[in-house]
Design a protein around this nucleic acid. Structure first.
Lengths: 244, 244
DNA sequence: CGACAACTTGACGGGCGTCAACCGGAGTGG
DNA sequence: CCACTCCGGTTGACGCCCGTCAAGTTGTCG
């Protein structure tokens, strides 16, 4: 059958197995998880700040972002997500969401009851380890983002965001530096890098003029991967083999 | 016996119990953990980027910070730590450190073998949950920091950092808004907020002139806690009761 | 009392935000 | 098939927040 018809949980086990070894019983445990599959339009809220969460959202197709709002109205995107990402693993143990998750393209998601996933983790230590490790990698990525918005200039920040997104897409089998479709708008890139969309536009142009990337609408081609990584100060160690 | 002579692990169990219920056997499991206690001077490296970690560092006394370095030489502090914090819980599952942890005052630490802590977590699900929850709260704090450096102006950033630090000190029984000793230099505040020490100094003065804080060397008094929280845009929900 | 780190303050400049106008493609409806 | 609309992208002018540089002060520890 075509990949898009596969079991929704396939992409989750695929990702977790790359992090931590799972045996046949672990895989069976995942496969047996009850879940409800839904297709939602771009802009749909998948997790809303302040709300008590009872189900975990698994992203099966499309892209999403996690963001927080400042009192002044500013929005900060703190991560992008793609096929196979569990969007709110933290709500297995934290009851109230401290941020929002929103679809940035049309998405397909699978809702898994929190209690079922928690029971599975308690029953099978290898699964608990894999999920824990996944959440630790998330935390590592957040640390890198603090560095990115705190200590790099605009061009580096954007380059870094691109490097990370490309590396993660590649790990998920969704593209390569040679040709990648960016799902996010320049305004979303701005919200992820702590800049404005106007300045993002200027910097993307600069990266083009430097011959580092080639742009054609939302399609991006990395003309010089080594140079992009250098400008970005990108060292994938912080992804902890999630992208290896 | 005086509190400072108590078992090193007391502060860890005290903190974790506030997050997640532990029974007598869980507490006994912690108490039985082998560990080596050490006193180290300010500036000592507790975790070093790129190094394979075999022991977990528990902070028993004093203060530490976690930081990353940019290629341009910039330093970004991504969190501060105090009594009772496990400094590298992430290395239970991630083998290589992606950042540094350094003492900012004289500290007392306890080194716990990774394998022992991991075995304990596997043997006692309540402990695994408590540790996992602790690391999820860490991640939540990182997300808030991304927002802080990405989307707030200098005065708010510093105010926010102060609010968080005070709230966490209070939770750890180390001070209150009425009188708190800041262990960090203005340069460290700058590295935590993505600013320069010069500008931190200007903003601290501004906060004083606004009548929000009163400074006397490293000693800080919050003159108007409500106003400080307002300026900081501080909503402690992201600490997930760690400070409740 | 000398040395050193941390703090303080002022002058100046630049990177990025703000504002505003315009363009271009995709979808929609007549 | 062509207007119309709308969202996202593009570009320029201008200004401010914060970085940089530099000099001086204060507190601490030997």
């Amino acid at each position: 059958m075509p990949p898009e018809d596969r079991d929704a949980l396939h992409w989750l086990t695929r990702k977790l197995e790359a992090l931590s070894p799972l045996d046949e019983a672990d895989r069976a445990g995942f496969a047996a998880l009850p879940h409800i599959r839904r297709r939602l339009p771009a802009g749909a809220h998948l997790v809303r700040e302040g709300v008590r969460v009872t189900e975990c959202c698994l992203l099966v197709e499309g892209y999403a972002c996690r963001h927080k709002l400042a009192a002044t109205g500013g929005r900060q995107i703190v991560s992008f997500h793609m096929r196979g990402d569990l969007l709110d693993i933290q709500h297995l143990l934290l009851s109230v969401a401290d941020h929002n998750v929103q679809a940035i393209t049309e998405v397909e998601v699978a809702w898994i009851p929190k209690t079922e996933l928690k029971d599975l983790a308690h029953a099978r230590p290898a699964i608990a380890d894999a999920l824990w490790k996944d959440s630790l990698i998330d935390a590592s990525v957040f640390r890198e983002w603090v560095l990115n918005v705190g200590r790099r200039d605009a061009k580096s920040r954007i380059a870094h965001m691109l490097c990370e997104f490309i590396a993660r897409c590649e790990a998920a089998g969704l593209g390569s530096p040679e040709r990648i479709d960016l799902p996010m708008t320049q305004e979303q890139i701005a919200d992820a890098t702590g800049l404005t969309s106007v300045h993002v536009n200027r910097m993307l142009r600069a990266l083009s003029e430097d011959g580092v990337i080639v742009r054609d609408r939302r399609r991006l081609q990395v003309a010089n991967w080594r140079e992009l990584r250098r400008v970005a100060d990108f060292d994938p160690i912080y992804l902890h083999e999630a992208a290896a």
